[in-house]
Write a protein that binds this DNA or RNA. Structure first.
Length: 472
RNA sequence: GGCCCCUUCGUCUAGUGGCCUAGGACGCGGCCCUUUCACGGCUGAAACACGGGUUCGAGUCCCGUAGGGGUCACCA
């Protein structure tokens, strides 16, 4: 456990400017796992201070995405914008303590400053021109921004639990803005104040925030607040090693749901991306919670691999409960067939699922693969299947149909015996009968399931009906 | 460009100075199972970026080089 007895509190702090993308989902997952591992709290903070880009739809999408992944948060979500007054209050305190100052530099001045600094190869930050000026020099009618008076020499080091000890010279850090000239707090200020007020003990976030951490640490120090533990995790890259693009999977988790991935599979995949527990590949959320540690997170970035996700998904589908799967795919089947499966067909679906789920890599595939069970005859035939129904084959099927009508019980063993008898009496290989039989029953040359199982699932009437139609 | 970070099979990774003839998983090849398609089992090819050190001994420690990434806003 940790050094002190303090309860672990983590947070996930998305900006509601879009869906919950896959990288954010992993960050949330790590925070969630860490909190649950320590029996602590996992909080949600919506960083909606960018009023123009924040939308209610995005908030809903993020909440939905997290719920779908099974990431439950403690307490009510905190909306950052609603805390602006408190942020301003902290800025004022800093001003009073002499640790912040008013800056009257104009935007034009600042860009010019950056350009010359860049041209001269110096750090491009703010040069501190209002840092020590007397307030009486303030120009008329210009409302100032408030900047932190950051230390100019020395160095700041972060003891990051993923990145290790990282040090940066303070001269690389400029006096960041706390309050804009319109009085609105900046992200840098809001984050620190909120994390402190929420009692966050561990900040686990993408390593694109690493450089922010130095500035934020300066703020914690200025306020004399305890700095939380940082853990900056590497971002996920695309299969080409470049930043994850939409084409490569930088999609919302809802897109993964629509692609037919199970939340368990995605969760399992996401944890293993950049984190490992020995050779374990497939594990439950309970195990992940038990095993998870920040120290186990790799420093190097990981690429997103759809093949591995698909493999994992196949595993979770095979192990999923049939009732649950049926619920997921019924709407998909209804849509594709443009009808609603009745009770009878729903029963058929449940019966078919054990063999269907052995083969599918995703939910959409699962639904499509079983479509033939529910189509109205006459079945649409694919070309390969059509070709299997030669006159010779039809003869075997006619023979089989006759034998089948003598059956008292429509059970697998008896059906199998009749197929075997047909094969034997006609003195042909098994495939000579089985292949056209499959084609007749499914309209396909290849389909999931043993042929006798398919007949049992289809039922006596439907099986015979399809056979008769194929023969004629 | 400045600063910071990263670098083990194609990909995700195990590995914390001798257990490494570098292990597992996905993907790929072969074989087996088989009533198609899958599942499954067995098996094969496949990596310590490069160059210097340190050490009796380096994938593991240090330095450099190369490549990759992040970040440098009155955005978050």
């Amino acid at each position: 456990m940790s050094q002190n007895a303090k309860q672990v509190i983590t947070r996930f702090a998305p900006s509601p400017t879009g869906f919950l993308h896959i990288g954010g989902a992993r960050t949330a997952l790590f925070n969630w796992l860490f909190a649950r591992h320590h029996g602590g709290k996992f909080m949600l903070r919506i960083e909606d201070t960018d009023r123009k880009r924040s939308t209610q739809e995005a908030i809903d999408a993020i909440l939905d995405g997290m719920s779908w992944l099974g990431l439950d948060w403690d307490d009510e979500p905190i909306f950052q914008y609603s805390r602006a007054d408190r942020h301003r209050e902290v800025a004022e305190q800093l001003l009073e303590k002499g640790l912040a100052y008013r800056c009257y530099a104009t935007p034009e001045e600042l860009t010019e400053m950056r350009e010359t600094a860049k041209a001269e190869g110096r750090p491009v930050g703010y040069d501190g021109r209002w840092r020590d000026r007397d307030p009486s020099e303030a120009p008329e009618g210009v409302s100032p921004a408030i900047r932190l008076k950051a230390p100019r020499d020395g160095a700041t080091t972060i003891h990051d639990h993923v990145q290790g000890e990282v040090t940066v010279q303070n001269q690389e850090l400029d006096d960041m803005i706390l309050l804009r000239s319109d009085g609105s707090p900046t992200y840098m200020l809001s984050v620190v104040v909120d994390d402190h007020d929420m009692g966050i003990t561990h900040i686990i976030r993408g390593d694109d925030h690493l450089t922010n951490a130095f500035r934020q640490k300066l703020l914690y120090q200025a306020m004399d607040w305890e700095t939380p533990i940082f853990a900056h995790i590497p971002l996920i890259y695309g299969p080409d090693g470049k930043k994850l693009s939409k084409r490569h999977g930088a999609l919302g988790v809802d897109a993964y749901r629509d692609m037919g991935y199970l939340p368990d599979a995605l969760r399992n995949y996401l944890v293993r991306l950049g984190w490992a527990h020995g050779d374990d590949e497939i594990f439950s959320t309970e195990q992940a919670t038990e095993w998870f540690s920040i120290e186990g997170i790799n420093k190097s970035p990981a690429r997103f691999d759809f093949d591995k996700l698909a493999n994992l998904n196949g595993h979770y589908i095979r192990n999923a409960d049939e009732e649950k799967l049926a619920q997921l795919i019924k709407p998909l089947i209804d849509k594709q067939l443009d009808k609603s499966l009745d009770d009878n067909l729903c029963q058929r679906l449940i019966a078919a699922l054990p063999s269907l789920k052995e083969r599918a890599k995703d939910i959409n595939e699962l639904a499509s693969s079983g479509l033939f069970y529910f189509r109205e005859s006459p079945l649409p035939f694919e070309e390969k299947a059509e070709k299997l129904l030669t006159d010779e084959a039809k003869g075997y099927l006619k023979d089989l149909l006759q034998r089948l009508s003598g059956l008292n019980n429509w059970v697998k063993s008896d059906i199998h015996d009749q197929i075997a008898a047909t094969v034997a009496d006609n003195d042909v290989g098994f495939g000579k009968v089985a292949k056209p039989l499959r084609a007749a029953l499914t309209g396909l040359a290849a389909s999931p399931g043993n042929i006798d199982d398919i007949m049992v699932i289809l039922g006596e009437d439907e099986s015979k009906k399809r056979l008769e139609q194929a023969i004629s």
